[in-house]
Nucleic acid binder design. Structure first.
Length: 303
DNA sequence: TAGGCCATCTGGTCCT
DNA sequence: AGGACCAGATGGCCTA
């Protein structure tokens, strides 16, 4: 809610128009000399000046004419302007909703510290680049490439934020990954951890979001729709999991009900017994083997 | 306090 | 004619 909504919109716009008027090019000024503009000035308490002075007789003649024909028409114009404003607001709101949806599927999502619009777009573009490269090559890039690509063109604060979301710190890498057997790919999930798992963490990293977000043939495997379709992820409570050598770190602002999670492959590899003890701000999930995950990840097994 | 980000209003342009 | 889209301008809020 901005002051524009709480205050009389014409109040600020009047000042705006006064200023704009002084710098606008001639072709724009022409329109402002129309009855519509005069009417608006009247409403904002500004203005008879166009008619009283300034452009003298021609305007005055036009002015008298417009006063004669204007009332009903001007009322319509004013109404149209109000309606157009409302439509524009709605349009921008839907655009913002779409951006929010985008925020939820890029690697760094936080409800309390939202990425700006421009940074969201940049990060999304970078993310797509990474995923595209993965699809193209069938291999996951090395960590450095991933991070560099992801943060390409991002501002320093956003880079820090993304790094924070991804928990990019040396200690995590060294202590938990042993130098290279880790994954920071939000689109990935690990597998084969736990009793039935193999422990090769490099191989355990598998892309996941890339397919989980599609409405394509892999969609049913997840029982999860695309970003266009509502999903637990899109409900806004989940952010992409980060895997460090089989340990997921999930940072969220709100608790997540993992028991009702449809993204079983991504989030539900935890027993219900433990779910109540989860710290939503730093959740470590122990992966379990899922048959469907094996299916899903087939295309991503390195050739 | 400056700068970044955002919501809103507005007029122009294009399209149906 | 009217709606969608766009870009410019502005003021408010927040943070370093």
């Amino acid at each position: 809610m901005t002051s524009n909504q709480t205050n009389n919109p014409f109040r600020t716009n009047w000042a705006t128009n006064q200023l704009v008027r002084s710098v606008k090019p001639e072709h724009s000024r022409a329109l402002e000399d129309t009855p519509e503009y005069g009417r608006r000035n009247d409403e904002m308490g500004g203005a008879e000046e166009d008619e009283e002075e300034g452009e003298a007789s021609v305007l005055r003649r036009r002015g008298s004419h417009r006063k004669h024909v204007s009332q009903a028409r001007l009322e319509r114009v004013r109404l149209r302007r109000i309606e157009a404003n409302a439509r524009e607001r709605n349009r921008m709101h839907s655009l913002n909703n779409a951006l929010d949806s985008l925020r939820k599927v890029v690697p760094c999502y936080s409800k309390t510290q939202k990425l700006s619009k421009i940074e969201t777009l940049r990060l999304a573009k970078n993310y797509i680049c990474v995923l595209g490269e993965i699809l193209r090559s069938g291999k996951r890039p090395d960590l450095l490439t991933f991070v560099q690509t992801l943060c390409k063109g991002l501002s320093q604060p956003t880079t820090n934020l993304v790094a924070g979301c991804l928990q990019l710190n040396t200690r995590s890498f060294i202590s938990e990954s042993g130098g290279e057997s880790f994954s920071l790919y939000p689109a990935y999930n690990h597998q084969h951890h736990g009793p039935t798992s193999e422990s090769s963490s490099v191989d355990s990293v598998r892309p996941l979001r890339a397919f989980g977000s599609l409405c394509g043939p892999y969609g049913p495997l997840y029982n999860s729709p695309s970003p266009d379709c509502p999903s637990p992820l899109d409900a806004g409570t989940l952010s992409p999991p980060i895997s460090f050598n089989g340990i997921f770190s999930l940072k969220n602002e709100e608790p997540v009900d993992y028991r009702s999670c449809h993204y079983g492959l991504r989030y539900c590899s935890i027993s219900q017994d433990h779910s109540a003890d989860l710290d939503p701000y730093d959740i470590h999930l122990r992966g379990q083997f899922y048959q469907v995950q094996e299916e899903l990840n087939k295309p991503f097994h390195n050739q």
